[in-house]
């Protein structure tokens, strides 16, 4: 297999004395879809936020596209890179949040354009075209000039996905993208993610949608108390259920096993 697009090398994260996760190593290859499952508090969201450098981490290396991100060595000491560098590295990843986090004072189109014009320094006309293209791709061609407050949760999350994808990141990170949605709105968002997977986007999904994870993933990671407790193909994780802890966890989801 080719060199991994994203690599964790013995990454550890703690808040004071509390270890969120310890000694995590994993690889994500280009065009791979990886789902991370696990109970709340298992460290999966924090792990995702470390890739986006929204959380500092204390040890180990995260390597994205051959480049270590977030930290570098200065005279043998591990130091966080400059704010400017961090902003650049963040633009290599796209993040979709549980709470959508759209900019409430900007229209859907402006939400998508902001990163293009300011981070990518794209001319406004070009950014506008690209924003329109992506908003249409997520089915919101009629809502481009609406403010987030005028959109449903599902529509807001689709704008947020367009905002992330338009930046053409190397990897897309979804942090429980459907957890804050009313049940009847989950489908429209999952459809968008499914299409992105089909088009070959590299993605990491932190999710509670077990059936969806089974269907769309190439690899599933089960996290438990800050460790990777199991990792494998969806078939291995959801059907063979290699560990006792995983069996217990999946038993709490009645949709856990694919029918």
């Amino acid at each position: 297999m080719s060199e991994a697009l994203l690599k964790f090398e013995n990454v550890s994260k703690s808040y004071g004395d509390f270890n969120v996760f310890t000694d995590i190593s994993l690889e994500v290859h280009e065009k791979e879809v990886v789902s991370i499952i696990g109970s709340s508090g298992s460290g999966k969201t924090t792990l995702l936020r470390c890739i986006n450098l929204l959380e500092p981490f204390q040890a180990g290396k995260i390597i994205l596209d051959g480049q270590e991100i977030g930290y570098h060595e200065v005279n043998g000491k591990r130091k966080r890179v400059s704010e400017k560098e961090i902003a650049k590295q963040r633009a290599m990843t796209g993040m979709v949040f549980q709470q959508f986090n759209l900019f409430p004072h900007m229209t859907a189109k402006k939400n998508v354009m902001l990163g293009l014009t300011h981070t990518k320094k794209m001319p406004v006309a070009e950014a506008e075209k690209l924003a329109e293209k992506w908003l249409s791709a997520v089915g919101l061609q009629d809502k481009m000039d609406n403010l987030p407050g005028q959109l449903s949760g599902g529509q807001q999350q689709r704008v947020a996905i367009a905002r992330a994808v338009a930046m053409s990141p190397k990897i897309l990170l979804f942090d429980e993208a459907t957890s804050a949605l009313d049940p009847e709105l989950v489908g429209e968002v999952l459809n968008v993610i499914r299409n992105l997977a089909k088009e070959g986007a590299t993605m990491i999904l932190v999710t509670h949608e077990m059936r969806f994870a089974y269907e769309v993933s190439d690899k599933v990671i089960f996290m438990d108390s800050g460790k990777i407790a199991a990792m494998g193909t969806p078939k291995e994780i959801f059907e063979e259920r290699p560990t006792e802890r995983l069996r217990e966890f999946l038993a709490t989801f009645n949709t856990g096993k694919a029918e």
Partner: peptide, 10 residues
């Protein structure tokens, strides 16, 4: 954080 995530400077 959403602003940071799309690489905007402080």
């Amino acid at each position: 954080e959403a602003g940071q995530a799309i690489g905007l400077t402080r």
